[in-house]
Amino acid sequence: MADDTVGKDVTPAGPKGSEVGAPRAQRSGSDDREKGFLSELFAPVAGFGVSFGTMFRKVATEEYPEKPRPTAPRFHGRHQLNRHPDGLEKCVGCELCAWACPADAILVEGADNDDTPGGAGRFSPGERYGRVYQINYLRCIFCGLCIEACPTRALTMTNFYELADNDRGKLIFTKDQLLAPLQTGMLTPPFPMADGLEERDYYQGKVSGPTDAQKAYVHDRDAAASDGDGLDDDGSTAPSITGAAGRPGNAAAAVPGAHDLVHSSNPSAPQTREGANP
């Protein structure tokens, strides 16, 4: 049996091998009739046809810095601390996110809200707010357990991912970098809750924007602050009332959120550094 199989393998291979080794002229005439002059001429470069044709195909490469593809809508990117529709922060400083974090990346220090005149002020509806909020992006593994743990939906994740930096310290994001930028009509905390409403009303969606009393309070507060600084500028406080074109609230508090808008509109490398800088 073994001899038979060996013989079968060798016999067909013999003529094939001699045909390949033989010069072109000695081949059978049927091959010559099939090949025309042009195909003979281009035979040595026929393989380049594939390369040439590829030049007209659509490019599969993602041209990242110029034309980045959008992420999946639920991609786990940088965190964001959200606000109520009137501008108060949703974070109540409960530290559940810090407890849930498997990498110990989150630091929260809560503090009491203060409604007394001349006090520290009110930053969130309810009893407490997150006075210090830091996320160390060199520890954060973007697992989203903090988002699941958050009882007030204060902490959510954006789709922003360009976080590389040359400094460890800059990658610890502080509260002013994580807070959502003020939307049109929102006021800058601290200011009191809407009249006649309590904490639960905020979560039941009964607040759609700042009331007139809140606007007046913020206007008076900003006016007092600008008087105290010696800046007698009417224009600086006027937009907080109208809220039509200008960013509401005082300019200094609005700056930290500004880089978020830049990122979403044009995500490129130079803006990334600004995002990390305080």
Binding site: P65, I141, A164, L171, T272, R273
Partner: peptide, 25 residues
């Protein structure tokens, strides 16, 4: 270390971003 890149793991775009940051540096 010249560039720190967060992420677990960073998506390929994040690495490209880190490389661009390194180019600036």
């Amino acid at each position: 270390v010249d560039i720190y890149l967060p992420g677990c793991p960073p998506r390929p775009q994040m690495l490209l971003n880190a490389i661009i940051e390194l180019h600036h540096q």
